[in-house]
Every structure is written in C-alpha cells, then in structure tokens.
C-alpha cells in the first residue's frame, strides 16, 4: 500500500493537470487553481523539512565536535539570529534583519561569486591549451566571444563583436536548441512514465 497509494495519487493529479489544459470549463479552472494553491502549501513544508534537516545535521556535528564544527556553529547561529529578528522586529526598512542581510549576507555571497573571476583566470591559464585542432578552435572562439562581449572588442575592430554575435546566434544557438529539444522530449517521456506508474524511482527503495 505504501507504494500503490502514491502511484494512484500521482496518476490522478498528473492526468488531471494534463487534461485540464484542454478544458477551460469553470469547474476545471477552479480545481486547477486549488491544485496550484496546494502545490505552494506543500512546497512550504518541504522548506521546513530542509531547515529541520540542516539543524539536525549541524547540531550533530557540533555536539560531536567533528571536523569543521565551527562552521556549522556559525551557520546555525546565523539561521537562529535571522529567524528571531525576522519575527521579532520584522523584515522591512531599518530593521536588524535587513541590516544583517545588507551588511553580512549580501556582501559575503557577492564575495564568493566574485572569487570565481580569480579561479576562472587561473584555471584558464593552466587548462586552456591548444593541444589539438579542436582545442585550438575552442580557444579561438573563446577569445573572440570574450573580447566581443566587452567594449574593447569593438574598439579593436567591429569584426570581433560581429563574429561573437554570429557565434552566439548560429553555432551556439544550434547546439542549445538541440539540447532543449532533447530535454523537452526527455521531460515528456519521463513525465508520462511517472504518471503511468512505470517510473517509480521517486518513491525510493523498497
């Protein structure tokens, strides 16, 4: 029963969402809106599951003083402090929550993202070698696109941004389209397999 009931629920709702797309009757629309409301409600509970899981995992590492437990302590403290101030003083203008967000969280996250530039440059220096014709071609394309996407490219020659645009709009887009079509077909076939109960891996192990 533990496996049969979820498969039946999945089939009913999957088939309903499929059929209602073509049925604009008010009963169908109303039921559709109710399903959408429930999707959001269920998702909020999954967030809660995530928070509980994070607290449990962090608490375990802290109490056992496992390697890197200090980071877990800081993470957990951050979570608790933000939640307390969020509920206590609100999240609007001139609140401690927003102050912490603007002065701690946002700069830290931006810094992490910015570090990518340094690592990309270092990795490009070490890894971007014209070891073969294919690698040489990739290198040439990368250089054209890198220069063509900044004003310096057009400053050197209009040929660079024009070529960069051609690369993005023709070969790159052709590859992307192929990928998207493949993803779309894969999504349809996997969805049908799930709705019909053929694909059951989402239920976990027996």
């Amino acid at each position: 029963m533990q496996r049969i009931i979820p498969i039946i629920v999945c089939f009913i709702f999957g088939a309903f969402m499929l059929v209602q797309f073509f049925v604009p009757h008010r009963v169908s629309v109303s039921a559709y809106q109710t399903v959408l409301d429930w999707m959001q409600i269920i998702f909020v509970f999954t967030l809660l599951v995530g928070v509980i899981s994070y607290v449990k995992l962090s608490s375990k590492k802290i109490t056992r003083t496992q390697s890197g437990w200090g980071y877990n302590l800081i993470g957990l403290a951050g979570l608790v402090v933000m939640v307390i101030f969020g509920f206590w003083k609100g999240t609007g203008e001139r609140t401690p929550f927003l102050w912490m967000f603007n002065t701690i969280q946002a700069p830290m996250q931006s810094t992490m993202f910015s570090l990518l530039a340094f690592f990309v440059a270092s990795a490009a220096y070490r890894g971007f070698r014209a070891r073969s014709w294919e690698a040489g071609l990739l290198l040439l394309v990368a250089v054209i696109v890198m220069l063509g996407r900044v004003p310096l490219g057009s400053f050197i020659s209009h040929w660079i941004p024009d070529s960069a645009n051609w690369i993005l709009n023709t070969p790159s887009m052709a590859a992307k389209r192929g990928l998207y079509i493949g993803i779309g077909l894969g999504t349809i076939s996997t969805s049908l397999r799930i709705i019909l109960g053929i694909e059951r891996t989402y239920l976990g192990k027996k």
Partner: peptide, 23 residues
C-alpha cells in the same frame, strides 16, 4: 563597470595566450 570588465577580459586573454606560448 564596463571598463573594468574590458580590461579584465583582455588580461585573461593575454594570460591564456602566454600559457600557450610557454606550452
């Protein structure tokens, strides 16, 4: 920010070129 991005792109290109010359 565009001047900064232009120069940093140029520096990365030069670094890649230098890496290939050494290689």
């Amino acid at each position: 920010g565009m001047d900064a991005q232009s120069v940093s792109h140029l520096v990365i290109v030069l670094i890649i070129v230098w890496g290939n010359v050494v290689y």
